[in-house]
Design a protein around this nucleic acid. Structure first.
Lengths: 199, 199
DNA sequence: AGATATCTGTAGTGTTCGCTACAAATGTGG
DNA sequence: CCACATTTGTAGCGAACACTACAGATATCT
């Protein structure tokens, strides 16, 4: 028994192309025609590999999360909670205005509100955003144990605050805010973070 | 010559219904069938009154902006820049979790990224968001003239910061954040605002 | 080499989309 | 009461949507 004709395209490279389309047009705004053209494959290959449009999105999100985890490891590796916050905010400002990608972040631009039948998509994106928030919170819990953060610091609230600010930066980036503007917002937010860890 | 059969529905009430659908499902996720059903009219009435789906969105946004302007007048009427920021942030936390509306804000949930042919929609929403930011900035310029804010305060940056935070709160609200959570974020942001106006 | 299993490209499928033709209905002005 | 202008409901338009049947191509395993 044979093992069948091998796949002629690289799945990860194709997912990177799909990510770009979902990022630029949102889940519902992206059409199969645009996706297959960007991925340089035909519809049957897409459906054989990923099952459905939503399956393709999930696969693209998995790949996005992989990259993001590597990035977060670097951010969370900073020596203090304050430096973690600074890296997180500043690198977000840069990433969201990186000309190599559409503006903002796939987890926000992908779709906050979707039509009937795609209700799962916003949930899926929210779950990935929550993952980042959880990683931050756990890092701040550690900082508290290490006496880097004071006893009255609230790791969950600090993580939520940083998550909210970066989500807001996504919205600004999607309407054309430049890198300098986002960095200013990040700088103000960092001061808020510092204030919050003093009290 | 006669004046024709009069319209049998109230346009403003219909727009309120349409707003809700766009808000909940986004521009692209909202279908004409859902809109007409919510508005309790038939497609020809919709097209006679608003021209197209995009025309309906713009009309709904105009109505939304009207209400928002009234709301902003109240916010901007506070006696100091700090109180303006506090009202702006706290009332946003409440409005975005008001059970009378879908979570978040129409100007964000409506669609940050859209498909080919609807590129205008994100621009339209962004323009309305910018309006709010402009109103805040002008209020802070006034506060500076009144010696309420110091000479080194940056009205444009303060306005952008508040705008970014409330946009971020929209994203959190859309994924289920409750009122208390948003108020906490607002409180942290208010401290950042205060810090920024001291330096 | 031959049998088998999977992929690929062509060419569609049925459904839903935004939108509209048309005729009946309903008001105004003369 | 009559001509006219506009709206209303029914019914359906062409186009675009996500998705797939099918046949030929290309690999593996015996």
């Amino acid at each position: 028994m044979g093992m069948g004709r091998p796949r002629a395209f690289d799945a990860d490279a194709a997912l990177d192309r799909a990510m770009d389309v979902f990022w630029r047009h949102g889940y519902e705004g992206a059409t199969i025609a645009q996706l297959t053209e960007a991925m340089s494959i035909n519809p049957p290959s897409l459906y054989a590999a990923f099952g459905s449009k939503e399956g393709l999105l999930k696969a693209a999100l998995d790949r996005y999360t992989e990259k993001r985890d590597a990035w977060m490891e670097k951010v969370l590796g900073a020596s203090t909670a304050r430096k973690v916050a600074e890296r997180f905010l500043m690198e977000h400002a840069d990433a969201q205005t990186d000309p190599a990608n559409p503006p903002g972040c796939l987890l926000v631009q992908g779709g906050l509100a979707c039509g009937t039948g795609s209700e799962n998509v916003p949930f899926e994106l929210a779950a990935r955003r929550t993952r980042t928030e959880d990683q931050l919170r756990e890092r701040f819990v550690r900082a508290k144990a290490e006496r880097d953060l004071g006893d009255n610091a609230d790791p969950a609230m600090l993580a939520r605050y940083l998550s909210a600010v970066t989500s807001g930066m996504c919205v600004m980036a999607s309407s054309g805010a430049n890198r300098e503007t986002l960095r200013e917002i990040a700088a103000v937010s960092l001061k808020a973070f510092e204030e919050q860890t003093k009290g």
